[in-house]
């Protein structure tokens, strides 16, 4: 795909999202949430390149969402609060990463899960600070110094989510093409060789881990500031599972996959919940099974096959 065509596609996709939000107003919220989750899924995708599955990335999502909730009183400006919350998550990712990058496969997955569960129960049990399962409501914040009404704030968050999604997707592509990103993929196939080439596989994985925490944190901050209500459920392991789910649903072959997957996931969820209130999870489960059994490349691969294109974006 040529560069110009790609830019047109990205702008077209963004325009489509905005158009849907315009014509079906209640979907604006759903789409913003989907993009926020897509950002976190981008982080999952990065680690999947190294063959590692984090079953605990909800930790960074929830951490940044709570950071935004607590920080909103101190820093009532969206455009400052959001990067601060995301950077906080990246810093946490660095600390946790120094520990977890020593492990692989199920140990890597389970340690991430364990740490996110620790955070979950901290959120749940320390009621005095976190209000337990009731969660915290976010006070209103300004956007670029402006006090916006609910409607304008909604549009601002959606636009911000679109810009962030495009930025991180672009950043990740550059990263994946770089020697560091290629070495990351080498961890999946022949980690020992990296060491015999004088590289530290752990440091390679750590760099990806911190970046993935940053992306999950960005998603979490957008999520918190959009829903304006954060609860411990954000950190529960099923949220992490959901992120991995979306990564596979969208397809691991492209940085567009997470956003495609997240939008499909959220729309299915909303409509399934409206259709059969008690069985939306079951419907999503069947969707996931169908994708894995019949289209393991995810929605992205299906789309590519339909378009007749062969090259990877």
């Amino acid at each position: 795909m040529s560069r110009a065509r790609e830019v047109v596609l990205v702008l077209g996709a963004a325009g489509l999202v905005l158009a849907i939000a315009w014509f079906v107003p209640w979907l604006r919220f759903v789409l913003t949430i989907a993009l926020a989750k897509g950002l976190a899924v981008l982080g999952i995708l990065l680690l999947l390149r190294a063959g590692q599955v984090s079953f605990g990335h909800a930790l960074y999502l929830a951490f940044a969402a709570y950071a935004a909730a607590f920080g909103a009183a101190l820093v009532p400006e969206t455009l400052i609060l959001l990067p601060l919350a995301a950077l906080g998550a990246a810093l946490l990712g660095l600390v946790v990463g120094l520990f977890v990058v020593r492990y692989r496969e199920i140990f890597f997955g389970m340690l991430n899960l364990a740490l996110s569960m620790v955070f979950y129960s901290v959120l749940e049990k320390f009621y005095a600070i976190t209000h337990g399962t009731d969660g915290i409501r976010l006070p209103p914040t300004t956007f670029a110094g402006q006090v916006l009404g609910a409607e304008a704030q909604g549009w601002a968050m959606l636009s911000l989510a679109l810009v962030l999604s495009a930025f991180f997707a672009w950043l990740m592509r550059i990263y994946l093409a770089s020697p560091l990103g290629q070495a990351l993929a080498g961890i999946k196939t022949r980690e020992a060789r990296l060491e015999f080439m004088g590289m530290s596989a752990r440091r390679v994985l750590l760099s990806a881990y911190v970046l993935s925490a940053l992306m999950a944190g960005t998603g979490g901050a957008v999520l918190g500031m959009t829903t304006r209500h954060v609860t411990p459920a954000l950190a529960y392991w099923t949220t992490s599972g959901e992120l991995v789910f979306i990564a596979i649903l969208g397809g691991a072959g492209s940085v567009a996959g997470p956003f495609l997957g997240a939008i499909a996931y959220e729309l299915t969820r909303v409509y399934a919940a409206a259709l059969v209130a008690d069985a939306w999870q079951m419907i999503l489960g069947f969707v996931l099974l169908l994708v894995i059994l019949f289209a393991p490349g995810g929605l992205w691969a299906i789309g590519r096959a339909l378009m007749g294109g062969r090259r990877q974006a």
Binding site: L48, V53, G241, V244, F245, I248, Q281, G285, L288, I292
Partner: peptide, 16 residues
């Protein structure tokens, strides 16, 4: 990861 996700899908189905 796909094998893991199959069991996750099953988990979602069985929960409901």
């Amino acid at each position: 990861v796909l094998q893991l996700l199959v069991t996750f899908a099953l988990f979602m189905i069985l929960e409901d």
